[in-house]
């Protein structure tokens, strides 16, 4: 086979994958699914609309951002650190899993049904919480902030209400994410 190949180094969920040989032009979602066995980042549309495939890009400046893996080539992630849905919960040495506050809230509130879009919502909400930690938002602005952060994500089962409410409640219950006044 004579496809042009590239070497990329990825750090996924804290694990460094030393140079992977990938064909030029492979999308990140395909590398996650077919090479790394991480299938939680889901293919919904393949053209960057539905956001079921987003991962979290941890930037060097300590900020984080959602990136759609269905339209972003693996080359972009060369040398970068990302978190996928499989790396959001914490697993201790004994293999016990502690869900993140967002995951726990989605579970508590029955936020999802089929769960196909859930990884995208978890990652979007996680990025939002991390942003609010750096720059808190007025309590009165929380609902609008949640809506803006999740608006791009498509859900077909539960009509968004339980996702949005869960994220709002986590934000309001987490010290340091909100301010009392504008």
């Amino acid at each position: 086979m004579s496809l042009p190949m590239r070497k990329v180094t990825l750090t996924v969920n804290g694990k460094r994958h030393d140079p992977l040989d990938v064909p030029e032009g492979m999308m990140m979602i395909d590398v996650l699914h077919e090479m790394l066995g991480l299938t939680g980042s889901r293919l919904g549309c393949g053209i960057g609309i539905c956001h079921a495939c987003v991962v979290i890009w941890d930037k060097d400046d300590k900020t984080s951002e959602e990136v759609q893996t269905c339209i972003t080539g693996v080359e972009f992630f060369d040398g970068k650190r990302i978190r996928t849905i499989e790396g959001i919960a914490e697993t201790n040495d004994r293999g016990e899993v502690t869900l993140s506050p967002v995951q726990q809230a989605f579970l508590d509130k029955f936020s999802f049904q089929c769960g196909y879009c859930t990884p995208g919502f978890v990652n979007a909400a996680t990025v939002l919480l991390e942003r609010l930690k750096r720059s808190p938002v007025a309590k009165a602005e929380v609902e609008a902030t949640v809506a803006a952060a999740l608006e791009a994500h498509i859900c077909r089962c539960t009509g968004y209400v339980r996702y949005y409410q869960a994220v709002r409640d986590v934000i309001l219950a987490t010290p340091g994410l909100t301010r009392d006044s504008a």
Partner: peptide, 16 residues
Amino acid sequence: GRAKVTGGKVFARDIR
């Protein structure tokens, strides 16, 4: 719920 919220392989689509 737990499998779904942690990105577990729950869909046929996830299986290789």
